[in-house]
């Protein structure tokens, strides 16, 4: 075994890239669930974002247009889910699953002509001498802008939910939609906005895959990342900080296990392969235990609301 061939700098740099799609999708889904809606269609929204973002980036030549289109694409599909569950009061679990199937199918259809093409990816930022610093240069100052944006988004969501009035209303809607309704808040409107936000985030996560991490369009390229994001929200007990920990842990161990294999580590490969799932769940469960109560699911999660009720 030659562990010295693993460079910690490159390892940390690539784990941040590996974690970003899941982080984006998970933080969006957390907001949705905080508002009392369970959207199991994360995978479908991600892949829609991946394909719309990729197509837009190809057609305009600008990755930023790609990310914008991805956010819009994700939000549009999410609003379809919102319309069905919030207005027509369909079952959220079934509708979410259908959204995943729908997204996978539609994305494959509209992505037909875009297989095997290369898009203009995002360049890593270059802050001159800062980026040239050993270790910190590459790890802190040497990423593409979306990595920073995703971290900023986590901080904003955390601040929004904890400190703002709008965040409080969103949480109230999620904890007790009847009470929120009685106080005169528009439960349905709040939830639709949360759903659209969640869709936009998932779309960004998907586009990060197709524009930066892979970077190309392939059918079904999310390959389950949306489900990981969903699981991370639950195991992070609906807290922004823990979502960040969970996503980085998952991404980190995925990258680490591949590096260990490549370096020829004498650890069973089956164990290494399962490690990202095992360690992420274990750590987040432990954190939740230590934190005790208070990290529980929003009380009205996945319960339909109608003003007459």
């Amino acid at each position: 075994m030659d562990l010295s061939s693993i460079s910690p700098t490159l390892l940390i740099a690539s784990l941040m890239v590996a974690a970003t799609p899941i982080l984006l999708a998970a933080i969006g889904e957390m907001v949705v669930e905080k508002s009392g809606v369970l959207n199991l269609g994360v995978e479908g929204m991600m892949i829609m974002g991946a394909v719309t973002g990729f197509i837009a980036a190809i057609e305009t030549g600008s990755p930023w247009a790609g990310f914008l289109a991805a956010a819009a694409g994700g939000a549009v599909v999410a609003l379809l889910f919102g319309f069905l569950t919030q207005v027509l009061l369909s079952n959220q679990v079934a509708t979410g699953l259908a959204l995943t199937l729908f997204g996978l199918g539609v994305s494959s259809l509209i992505g037909q002509g875009y297989v095997g093409i290369k898009a203009n990816g995002l360049r890593r930022i270059d802050l001159g001498w800062l980026t040239d610093l050993p270790f910190v240069g590459r790890v802190i100052f040497g990423h593409d802008p979306m990595v920073y944006l995703s971290l900023l988004l986590v901080a904003l969501v955390w601040g929004f939910l904890k400190y703002t009035r709008a965040g409080l209303i969103l949480r109230a809607v999620g904890e007790s939609h009847d009470a929120a309704h009685a106080l005169g808040y528009h439960v349905r409107r709040v939830r639709l906005m949360a759903i659209a936000f969640g869709g936009a985030c998932a779309g960004l996560g998907g586009a990060y895959l197709s524009l930066v991490r892979v970077p190309q369009w392939t059918d079904g390229m999310t390959a389950g990342a949306g489900w990981i994001a969903l699981a991370i929200v639950v195991f992070a007990s609906w807290r922004a900080g823990r979502v960040l920990v969970g996503a980085y842990l998952f991404g980190g161990i995925t990258v680490l296990q591949l590096n260990l294999q490549t370096a020829g580590a004498k650890v069973s490969v089956e164990l290494l392969s399962a490690a990202p799932y095992l360690v992420t769940i274990l750590v987040l469960v432990l954190i939740s235990f230590r934190a005790g109560r208070g990290g529980d699911a929003p009380a009205d999660l996945a319960r339909p609301f109608h003003a007459s009720g």
């Binding site: 590996a18 799609p21 392939t218 079904g220 390229m221 591949l258 490549t262 490969v269 392969s273």
Partner: peptide, 22 residues
């Protein structure tokens, strides 16, 4: 390096990057 998948573009890209890094 065993990817334990036939098809997962993100993981395959990560595996290739880990190799290139090393």
């Amino acid at each position: 390096t065993w990817a334990y998948t036939w098809f997962d573009p993100a993981k395959e890209a990560d595996a290739a990057r880990a190799m290139i890094d090393q």
